[in-house]
């Protein structure tokens, strides 16, 4: 077609081709540096003359490969369970709260801001203790597990709500207007147009929140839950191998965090469609 020829061919993108070799060299250097740092760390630990035999013996328990004495999950698996359940609950709480913050209804807005302010303005540890230790005083007795789940969900829900709200606000108004002009109903605009675009902005900070939730789940060890940190401490206390047990726990937390980060990266890439077509590392 004649008209096509006059159109500059998709306006050549400056960041298209020649960057590739430099980028892969960059990655190589990054991996090499990481390797050196890991080796240094291992060498440092080796120099401490630690007794890792004991760790090896307790590792299946730490990882949660065996059930605890109460027949429930323990160790890293319990940590993961607490994190996963709290994540889902926090997400539900956060979506509702964010909707309230974005709403024109003054009562909904007030409820949302009040909740977010209360739970962001007080320490998680205090919240855990209030729910577990203080509520029974007024007749509300909750088990360790449910207390931990509730505290983590409510605390992280408050933070996540802010993340979701700012993501929704960052989608240009023109997107909503264009969708309205196409006569899409409101729910569909959120589901198909503004939501997915907000998600791209929400995933990185939400991923960071979930990683920190994974680590904060160690706080529920004070509720007597046999999760990773609790087990590491009790084995350490029994054998005086504090350094070994806590290092092992730290490494397991770290490995789990890395898994979370990889998952987050994958998600980011999926929702970056159309935005990060070029210039991705």
């Amino acid at each position: 077609m004649a008209l096509d020829a006059e159109v500059p061919a998709a306006v050549a993108r400056p960041d298209a081709a020649p960057v590739v070799p430099r980028r892969s060299f960059f990655r190589l250097q990054v991996w090499a540096t990481w390797l050196i740092l890991v080796l240094l760390l291992a060498w440092g630990c080796h120099g401490l003359q630690l007794d890792f035999g004991y760790v090896g013996e307790k590792l299946p328990f730490l990882l949660g490969l065996r059930l605890g004495p109460d027949g429930f999950l323990q160790g890293a698996l319990l940590t993961l369970f607490v994190t996963a359940v709290s994540m889902v609950c926090a997400l539900c709480v956060a979506v509702v709260t964010a909707a309230g913050r974005l709403s024109n209804n003054p009562v909904a807005f007030a409820l949302a801001t009040f909740y977010a302010s209360l739970f962001r303005g007080t320490p998680l540890l205090v919240q855990v203790l209030i729910i577990y230790l203080a509520l029974p005083q007024v007749g509300l007795v909750l088990g360790g597990l449910s207390s931990g789940l509730i505290a983590l969900s409510l605390n992280y829900g408050a933070y996540l709500a802010e993340t979701i709200r700012s993501g929704m606000m960052a989608v240009p108004l023109g997107q909503r207007e264009a969708a309205m002009a196409l006569s899409l109903p409101r729910w569909l605009i959120v589901w198909k147009v503004t939501g997915p675009q907000a998600l791209r902005l929400i995933i990185p900070p939400a991923g960071a929140l979930f990683v920190s939730m994974l680590k904060d789940s160690s706080l529920v060890s004070i509720l007597g839950l046999w999760e990773l940190n609790f087990l590491a401490q009790s084995y350490a206390r029994a054998s005086f191998h504090y350094m070994e047990m806590l290092l092992a726990a730290a490494l397991i937390y770290w490995a789990l965090s890395i898994v979370f980060e990889v998952a987050q990266f994958r998600l980011e890439r999926r929702f970056g469609k159309g935005v990060a077509v070029a210039g991705r590392r």
Partner: peptide, 16 residues
């Protein structure tokens, strides 16, 4: 709105 098409100054295509 079904019967009214609109074209904006800033295109407002859905980028995703």
């Amino acid at each position: 709105r079904r019967e009214i098409g609109m074209v904006f100054q800033g295109f407002n295509l859905f980028p995703h």
